[in-house]
């Protein structure tokens, strides 16, 4: 098999605090291949965004990578110095932020922000950079791109601004794009357009996309594979269809059962009892065990192995595909 664009191996991110060391990302591993969209889901604080930030090297101090490897097309990037990493950012990996209203500099025109990025990474003249900027806007579906290149961000609507953000993230043609909740701040109708745009760019350019979101609808719509995170750990990883229909980890099953589906009509949604433990107060064993209806003594002692299942991987002693799957999904 070809080398994955992004390969995260046993990544651990730590934040030292006065009350001890927190691990917002704990032993996470996954690969993303060219032209593939990996969805990363989880509740707030599950470590999804933190994983993305660690990959692109934008962890806010004092958070730092404690151990593990991050390989970009086989090249280790987790140990690169600040400036070497900066050269990769924008050029080989781009990032899309959540709120298009705040991610563009209000005092610089769209063209200024685009050409600045292009000229930072590619060896082109200003005129060429400007042409590329227009082409980038055109590609993300901004009408009359050449006329709008000198507009300021406030002259665009929210959805259009997110397109500009995507153009900015992609203008130097990176291999990897990390999209951190790219649709959360948008209207539902605009969300679908942005997701369609991301999918198209991913297919056409063969970009690897890490799509961080808490919206299962977005995952079902866009992702090829999905990684479910819980309390900093990877609970389950597998093809999106299998994970949604036949979850192995009880947490994933609970998550799916609590997601409203139009096909299920107005049935009352299931809830997972309790809430995700805070990072400073993780239980000894599996972090989900206090809320898990299948938990046994073993689960409370030891987090358990990550095992290969028929879907992919699940960090559970008792993956549902071999136990009471029917009960959990109902």
């Amino acid at each position: 098999m070809e080398t994955p664009i992004l390969s995260v191996r046993n990544l651990v991110v730590e934040i030292p605090t006065r009350h001890g060391i927190l691990r917002p990302v704990d032993n996470v591993s996954y690969d993303i291949h060219a032209g593939e969209i990996l969805g990363v889901v989880g509740e707030s604080g599950a470590g999804k965004s933190m994983t993305g930030n660690a990959v692109i090297g934008l962890l806010n101090r004092p958070a730092h990578i404690k151990s593990g490897e991050i390989l970009l097309s086989g090249q280790p990037i987790h140990s690169l110095s600040g400036d070497a990493l900066r050269r990769l950012r924008g050029k080989r990996m781009g990032m899309i932020f959540q709120d298009p209203l705040t991610s563009l500099n209000p005092l610089l025109t769209v063209g200024e922000q685009l050409t600045e990025t292009i000229m930072e990474h590619l060896d082109v003249s200003y005129a060429q950079a400007l042409d590329r900027a227009v082409a980038a806007l055109d590609e993300v579906g901004i009408p009359a791109a050449r006329a709008r290149i000198n507009s300021y961000p406030h002259e665009f609507s929210g959805g259009m601004r997110q397109r500009v953000v995507i153009a900015l993230a992609l203008c130097a043609e990176p291999e990897l794009v990390i999209a951190d909740e790219p649709t959360t701040a948008l209207d539902v109708s605009v969300q679908a357009q942005i997701i369609a745009l991301l999918k198209r760019l991913c297919r056409e350019r063969g970009v690897a996309v890490m799509l961080v979101t808490h919206d299962m609808g977005v995952i079902a719509e866009a992702a090829d594979r999905v990684a479910v995170m819980y309390a900093g750990r990877l609970a389950e990883l597998g093809p999106v269809r299998d994970v949604i229909l036949n979850a192995d980890h009880p947490y994933t099953a609970g998550l799916m059962a609590s997601t409203p589906l139009a096909s299920q009509g107005q049935k009352r949604l299931r809830q997972i009892p309790g809430s995700m433990p805070r990072l400073g107060q993780l239980p000894m064993g599996c972090a989900f065990s206090p809320r898990c209806e299948f938990a046994q003594d073993k689960c409370k002692q030891d987090p358990g192995p990550t095992r290969e299942t028929c879907n992919g991987r699940a960090a559970c002693w008792f993956p549902l595909s071999s136990t009471a799957k029917q009960e959990a999904t109902q």
Partner: peptide, 26 residues
């Protein structure tokens, strides 16, 4: 601390340009 500064960093813009062009003007 603003998002657009983070986004500029994520695009690989140099610190000098971030400080004097993106931040100072604001």
């Amino acid at each position: 601390r603003m998002d657009y500064i983070r986004f500029a960093r994520a695009r690989g813009i140099r610190e000098k340009s971030i400080n004097f062009k993106h931040a100072l003007k604001n």
